Amino acid sequence: MTILRFIAAALAALLIAAGPATAAVQPAQLTAQDRQDLQRVEQYLGSLTTVQADFVQTTNNTDLYRGRFYLKRPGKMRLEYDPPIDYMYIADGTWLTYYDAELRQRKDVPLGSTIADFITRSNVRLSGDVTVVKVSRGNNLLSVQLVQTDKPEEGSLTLNLSTNPMLLQSWVAVDAQGTVTQVDLTGMQPGVQLDNKLFVVPRKKSDR
């Protein structure tokens, strides 16, 4: 797996591209309660056809960034940062693109080769190419830690959801270098109308 520029201070494991497999994954020993809760998570995530939210992102408990998160399933996602950050990440259904608005430069990786594909796919399953390695609970919070089944050593993604009602509160990504990135969502609006133009990647200078 390779990491795009600024990933260490951005979404970390969400935007990691695929590479050669090595270590075997160690799945969690799931209880009956775990399986029931994971089914609820799948159903909840599957119900999110569109989402708009604000986010606050911290990296290694130091750097702090704010911005907006948009999701339009299947395949489309956008994360844009408040000034002075000029970066954004856009999934258009085929590619996941890092775009530098100041330099008008972009870098693309196939969406299906990243764990971001899990967030945007039409059929969300906590199995198959992702493996649940830990389930924990506390204070109306359910946490589900995931790794890519074929590449567990390259990072993890933990989804934190309130349970009553179920609502995605945050995610925590740990990349292969141990960088910890937490993204907290606020003002979450499911089911909103989102213009497809949000998921069109701007041109880079050489495309003009």
Results as ranks from 00 to 15, higher is better:
residue 32 A to E: 11
residue 179 T to D: 13
residue 48 L to T: 05
residue 171 W to N: 07
residue 208 R to A: 14
residue 134 K to T: 02
residue 91 A to V: 11
residue 4 L to W: 01
residue 103 L to R: 15
residue 75 G to S: 07
residue 133 V to P: 00
residue 157 L to A: 08
residue 80 E to V: 10
residue 171 W to M: 07
residue 67 G to A: 09
residue 175 D to T: 05
residue 206 S to P: 03
residue 63 D to H: 10
residue 197 K to I: 05
residue 7 I to N: 10
residue 91 A to L: 06
residue 125 R to W: 00
residue 7 I to L: 12
residue 80 E to R: 14
residue 171 W to D: 02
residue 20 P to C: 07
residue 104 R to P: 00
residue 190 P to M: 08
residue 140 N to M: 02
residue 10 A to F: 02
residue 182 Q to R: 09
residue 121 R to V: 01
residue 38 L to E: 01
residue 15 L to V: 15
residue 1 M to S: 14
residue 64 L to G: 01
residue 44 Y to F: 11
residue 134 K to L: 04
residue 167 L to A: 12
residue 79 L to E: 06
residue 131 T to Y: 03
residue 125 R to Q: 09
residue 132 V to Q: 05
residue 133 V to F: 03
residue 160 N to C: 04
residue 64 L to W: 01
residue 47 S to H: 03
residue 199 F to W: 10
residue 26 Q to R: 14
residue 13 A to D: 07
residue 190 P to V: 14
residue 60 N to I: 02
residue 9 A to P: 01
residue 64 L to F: 01
residue 14 L to G: 07
residue 167 L to E: 11
residue 162 S to L: 01
residue 7 I to P: 00
residue 20 P to M: 11
residue 115 I to L: 13
residue 171 W to R: 09
residue 147 V to A: 11
residue 138 G to Q: 07
residue 172 V to W: 00
residue 18 A to I: 07
residue 142 L to Y: 02
residue 139 N to D: 04
residue 198 L to P: 00
residue 27 P to T: 05
residue 200 V to F: 05
residue 105 Q to E: 10
residue 30 L to Y: 04
residue 12 A to K: 04
residue 115 I to K: 10
residue 54 D to K: 13
residue 146 L to R: 07
residue 125 R to S: 05
residue 162 S to N: 06
residue 183 V to M: 08
residue 195 D to K: 12
residue 163 T to E: 15
residue 167 L to H: 06
residue 190 P to H: 10
residue 162 S to E: 03
residue 184 D to R: 14
residue 207 D to Y: 13
residue 116 A to M: 14
residue 12 A to P: 00
residue 80 E to A: 12
residue 89 Y to W: 09
residue 18 A to C: 07
residue 18 A to H: 08
residue 149 T to M: 06
residue 122 S to D: 09
residue 51 V to F: 00
residue 59 T to S: 06
residue 104 R to A: 15
residue 112 G to N: 10
residue 176 A to E: 08
residue 177 Q to S: 12
residue 125 R to M: 02
residue 72 K to A: 14
residue 26 Q to S: 10
residue 204 K to L: 04
residue 48 L to E: 04
residue 110 P to R: 12
residue 148 Q to A: 11
residue 19 G to I: 04
residue 54 D to T: 15
residue 187 G to E: 03
residue 75 G to F: 03
residue 67 G to T: 08
residue 49 T to E: 14
residue 182 Q to S: 03
residue 104 R to K: 15
residue 112 G to V: 10
residue 152 P to M: 08
residue 169 Q to W: 00
residue 177 Q to G: 10
residue 1 M to R: 10
residue 65 Y to P: 00
residue 198 L to C: 03
residue 72 K to F: 06
residue 208 R to K: 15
residue 140 N to Y: 00
residue 113 S to A: 14
residue 89 Y to N: 09
residue 171 W to G: 07
residue 124 V to F: 09
residue 76 K to G: 06
residue 40 R to Y: 00
residue 206 S to D: 09
residue 44 Y to P: 06
residue 66 R to K: 12
residue 76 K to S: 04
residue 180 V to A: 07
residue 74 P to R: 15
residue 31 T to S: 15
residue 158 T to I: 01
residue 33 Q to S: 14
residue 162 S to D: 01
residue 30 L to E: 06
residue 122 S to P: 01
residue 49 T to V: 13
residue 52 Q to K: 15
residue 194 L to I: 15
residue 118 F to Q: 12
residue 36 Q to W: 08
residue 99 Y to R: 12
residue 70 Y to F: 13
